[in-house]
Design a protein around this nucleic acid. Structure first.
Lengths: 357, 357
DNA sequence: GCCATAATTTGAACCGATCCAACGAAAGTG
DNA sequence: CACTTTCGTTGGATCGGTTCAAATTATGGC
């Protein structure tokens, strides 16, 4: 019925061509796996049979079971798959991960899913030798599932507080402190904070009290870093507006609408470069000069920050290094890794300047 | 000896816990695959045994062999893996592919390799249900290898002339013609062309005669499209300088150095947006106004072109649609697809204007 | 208490290869 | 010619599950 391929034809297996060539399946296997140990005459006969029967070569599905190793590492996220290609942070990270994989010849499997049952199944059935998990928003379920596979595992951006999970990340408190101090030293006293999500599925204004209850430790730590440093400069942090965003334009703009409706800050602490970049757009549209009227400092150090107008001052994470280490941890799997805290770097560009006051 | 995990301990298998729980492996399998058909008491007993023995759940490696389907599609390229995350065209394509995969719950395996033996092995042993091949530069070996797997297969950017390979692409002749006509209608008469590679591993000036011998049909077709249209406008194409690039800054700049050393063109036909974008940088550095002194039209329609200074006029490919169709072709594998030519779209922005003459 | 019917469980077969101990044949040695 | 090597080949075991027909046990009706 099918026009091109012959009906219900089961694909030819190694055993089929062995029979056709009149050799044992062991020998047939050798023809493909170690041609050198098979007598030439036999080898050619088997190859001819394979050719004649349209054999596609040893099926990796079969080989896999015996070999044990897939030779691919899985990269998982709670976001949709396109996150890997859209998000600037993810892209830099993935570029680094993929370079490390190329160097060792390992492949990469991208794992994700829209809904969460799907996710569970995808993680459980992923054919990989280990997992690198992007858990930007404290997707502890993801970490949990990945760990249950009992494969080499490492979480990126240590959102979990569980000391037992292997993770690579940066000192968020220190990084945030760097940003806050930078602005405070420039004379700024009126601050506003644009945060990443604290709890799932909402955004808007947040109170100080809620900060400490923040679900995601990365968010919480950065907030702590910001405020710890501001307090040190004698700034009344209870007056600092905090707006939660979901790292997209809409929520950032809404946050800024809210913030600038009150007393105008001269300095904005943005918890990601993406937030900062969206903020820059908002400020430009509202004819607020950066850094003339308002200074802003991002977090992450994505390449886009260097090309924005104005170029973004930010707390750069060693993204490429994190990726490299993650791959190394998976491939070596010496069990030595538990958590690694990498240093951050304040990159001062043109989005921050002296306070106008 | 190993500090954390107990020595050489073989991972527990389903059979192990079946024995421990005193049930057959068939039942043990059902506990995980179809819990509902197992009596609750037995189910709990097996689960308890699994828990106690540290069973990681049914190993997908085992399941795979019987199931047959991997539930992942492979995306292959001759470039390094990081190409998927660095290149603008690839990124848009991958974003589209990944959305289509998300929608059906399929995973994505990225396949590549530095050297070409590695490539062969990687393709041959990739655990995928089908291949989407990025063959931007006529990597016919890649196509060949992928086809030998006898899995659903589709090439992106039909570089092969072989009508038998399933491929999705655009009409390069028409697209290039659109670009050339656009500029000619604006009054331009002095043209220069910046091409993608014609043959492997070189770049620099090319003669008309070499064009027809171009190895890669996409390149050749675009050149034909350009010149076909220019001839139609009575332009002496033998005087049009053609410079081959490898789609990077260095080769584009070298090409422009060469071109502008001769008689200055007022219009540049760039065979990719990346080339055009690099050219824009070069022109800016040389204080040549765009489109005041020189107009330029790209090819591809990547998002970066919309944000460049000035925004780039380009021949947009329906990249997202191509990705969607590719995934559809793999997943449905109805064998109906052979080659699809999608329409291109001339997007006029500010990098092209009337000839200064 | 007996039999039909439904609910569970069993165990063999299978998925498609690789690996390896054992074996047979050809070649080399004294 | 008997005896050891060397080379190539064989076929069974294995990898870790899933599936299904058949066997077993449980439930229900009368």
């Amino acid at each position: 019925m099918t026009p091109l391929t012959s009906g219900k034809t089961r694909p030819v297996r190694l055993a089929d061509i062995a029979k056709a060539a009149g050799v044992s399946h062991g020998t047939a296997s050798n023809v493909f796996a170690r041609p050198d140990i098979v007598r030439e005459e036999v080898r050619e006969r088997v190859k001819a049979a394979a050719e004649a029967m349209g054999y596609a070569g040893p099926d990796p599905k079969g080989r896999l079971l015996r070999a044990g190793k897939v030779n691919a590492i899985g990269v998982a996220t709670g976001e949709p798959l396109s996150y890997f290609f859209d998000d600037p942070f993810a892209r830099v990270m993935m570029a680094s991960i993929s370079q490390a994989c190329d160097a060792t010849g390992a492949g990469i499997s991208l794992v994700s899913a829209a809904n969460s049952e799907q996710l569970a199944w995808n993680i459980q059935s992923a054919l990989v030798d280990g997992f690198i998990v992007f858990c930007m928003e404290g997707d502890s379920r993801l970490v949990q599932l990945a760990r249950e596979r009992k494969l080499p595992f490492v979480a990126l951006d240590l959102d979990s507080d569980d000391q037992a999970v292997a993770a690579i990340g940066v000192d968020n408190i220190e990084g945030a402190g760097l940003a806050a101090r930078h602005l405070a030293e420039l004379g700024h006293r009126r601050f506003a904070v644009l945060t990443l999500p604290c709890v799932d599925g909402r955004f808007g204004a947040v109170t100080q009290a809620q900060v400490e209850k923040a679900l995601f430790s990365a968010t919480r730590d950065r907030l702590r870093g910001y405020f710890g440093e501001l307090v040190r400069f004698g700034i009344d942090v209870s007056n600092v507006p905090i707006c939660e965003t979901v790292n997209d334009e809409k929520s950032v703009w809404a946050g800024l609408d809210h913030i600038f409706a009150g007393s105008r800050p001269t300095a904005i602490l943005a918890m990601s470069d993406k937030i900062a970049l969206h903020a820059l757009d908002w400020l430009r549209q509202h004819d607020i000069a950066v850094p003339g009227d308002v200074s802003i400092v991002g977090f992450d150090g994505v390449p886009e920050g260097a090309d924005s107008k104005p170029p973004l001052t930010t707390v750069a994470q060693p993204i490429a290094e994190m990726g490299r280490r993650a791959v190394k941890a998976i491939l070596e799997n010496d069990g030595s890794l538990s958590r690694q805290l990498l240093p951050v770097d304040l990159v001062v560009r043109s989005s921050s300047g002296p306070s106008p006051a």
